[in-house]
Design a protein around this nucleic acid. Structure first.
Length: 452
RNA sequence: GGCGGCGUGGCCGAGUGGUUUAGGCAAGGGACUGCAAAUCCCUGUACAGCGGUUCGAUUCCGCUCGCCGCCUCCA
């Protein structure tokens, strides 16, 4: 049975499903105001691996992840570029899905848009106002955080401590009653996109959309709510508080993934010049490199992405691809049940993917050893286990082994002739020429092979 | 300042109160090869610092230092 660290309880908890065999999960998606960065890649890959693992285990997963397509930054960008929020949002949503596609992240079962849920949000807010959990402030409608008894659960801080840490000045300008109150509805300034509401034209605050969309699509008491750990507070706290306030059972479990750091432990930040956008990384690297790195670190720990870690993962992948080519015939063989059982143990234990990946290497070693002269001959079983595990991880192995172009093959044939004549100088010169075109030459017992 | 988390060998990154101390990458040596490549074999004794608990701590406790996240939009 799957166990995950639940932020609400602060410990690794068995994930009891609302409905056995079916898991419902909501993950907060991006605000499409710009290109996604490496952090987006990390959390989407993390939950993609969980989803793939559960699906492989026979659990039917309903995975909802939203697109926030109306928000201050989108408005600001549209203004700066002299265009509309719709165009900004659709442009960057396209970049988002393209990046997800390249990463091999499965599309969500449903990917709702905030702008499609505004009437429902207005309805929710109205209910909160009626119930005394929200009030009209100077520039919008605010949620009365202190009206929810256990507010601070996900922040893991008592209300008094949160209140002490919050910024006071925010209270002055907005008419907030408490510094920890947050905006539910922002009244529109001239020129801003807006929707009608009982309190005046405006737009929803960020924290309401996820409540409405998750409950609408997954229903009360859905199984998992996930996101990056920087969302635990205030975003998830505020979602929870709203659901609590209207008496709707919300997520049964809260899961959060760690941040991406640059080399040397520093946070990625534009001022340090060490940020990399996701499309940029995907342009410069095999997309599987990022997935492998994510798998090789625990999802809750901070992870480092730097040129050297990318290079290491690239080399690892090259070795695995070679393995896949060498054992391509074993793809349809039966994998080893015992080793797959150990994989389940590791994955069920708070998604211990680093240990799970180690098992893949173990299977690889066994396959290699078994195929050695005098080996026990069950190489196919182990190789099939490697392929099976790679499949669970969403990490397709194998080179394209594209057809060798005729002109390249001609050079290789010429080289073979030279080798047969023991003309090593010519042979090596031809090999250099092939290498210059990106072709790696391997002379094996059964002849010469070429690959990229 | 408050809360949470982390600090492991050249790099990344698991794990454990003691005995046979993951894995990946890189590195060195060897086999194979005309030379390479790929592959195989061998090699690395690390757990921030200082105290404490213990027969024994990298693993438990305390403190110090460093780093990260949240407390404000943020994956």
């Amino acid at each position: 049975m799957l166990h995950l660290f639940d932020t609400a309880s602060g410990q690794v908890t068995p994930i009891e499903l609302r409905r056995p065999g079916h898991l419902s999960m909501y993950v907060c998606g991006p605000t499409v105001s710009g290109e996604p960065h490496l952090g987006h890649g990390r959390f989407t890959l993390t939950w993609d691996v969980l989803r793939r693992y559960l699906t492989w285990s026979g659990v039917e997963v309903r995975f909802v992840s939203n697109i926030t397509d109306i928000e201050d930054k989108i408005i600001a960008r549209a203004a700066a570029e002299g265009t509309t929020t719709e165009l900004v949002a659709s442009k960057y949503e396209k970049v988002w899905w393209d990046s997800m596609d390249r990463l091999g992240v499965w599309s969500p079962t449903e990917g709702p848009h905030a702008t499609a849920y505004v009437p429902q949000m207005v309805e929710l807010i109205a209910g909160l106002v009626d119930g005394g959990h929200a009030y009209v402030g100077g520039d919008g409608v605010y949620f009365a955080s202190e009206s929810v008894p256990d507010y601070g659960l996900l922040a893991r801080q008592p209300l008094s401590s949160l209140r002490a840490g919050a910024r006071i000045e925010a209270t002055e300008e907005s008419g907030k009653r408490s510094p920890i109150d947050f905006v539910l509805w922002k009244l529109a300034k001239p020129g801003e996109p807006s929707w009608p509401s009982p309190w005046g034209a405006g737009r929803p605050g960020w924290h309401t959309e996820c409540v409405v969309m998750s409950l609408d699509l997954l229903g009360d008491g859905f199984d998992l709510h996930g996101g990056g750990n920087d969302l635990a507070f205030p975003h998830h706290e505020n979602e929870r508080a709203q659901a609590e306030a209207i008496g709707r059972p919300f997520a049964r479990h809260w899961v959060h993934s760690g941040m991406v750091e640059a080399e040397g432990g520093g946070k990625m930040s534009k001022s340090l010049g060490n940020v990399m956008s996701l499309p940029e990384l995907l342009d410069a690297n095999d997309p599987r490199v990022m997935r492998l790195q994510v798998l090789q670190s625990h999802y809750r720990s901070p992870m480092t992405i730097s040129p050297s870690t990318l290079a290491a993962a690239t080399n690892t992948l090259r070795g695995l691809d070679t393995f896949a080519s060498d054992f391509a015939a074993a793809r349809s063989a039966e994998p080893d049940a015992a080793l797959l059982g150990r994989l389940r143990e590791r994955m069920d234990d708070d998604l211990d993917t680093p240990a799970a990946v180690r098992l893949l290497f173990e299977a690889r070693d066994r396959a290699r050893t078994a195929s050695l002269p005098g080996g026990c001959g069950d190489a196919d079983r182990w190789a099939a286990t490697v392929f099976e595990m790679a499949d669970v991880f969403g990490l397709p192995l194998g080179r394209d082994d594209e057809a060798v172009p005729a002109d390249i093959q001609a050079i290789a044939d010429e080289r073979s002739v030279a080798r047969a004549a023991r003309d090593w100088a010519r042979s090596d010169a031809l090999r250099d020429r092939l290498a210059a075109d990106g072709w790696i030459v391997e002379d094996g017992p059964s002849g010469t092979t070429l690959h990229r």
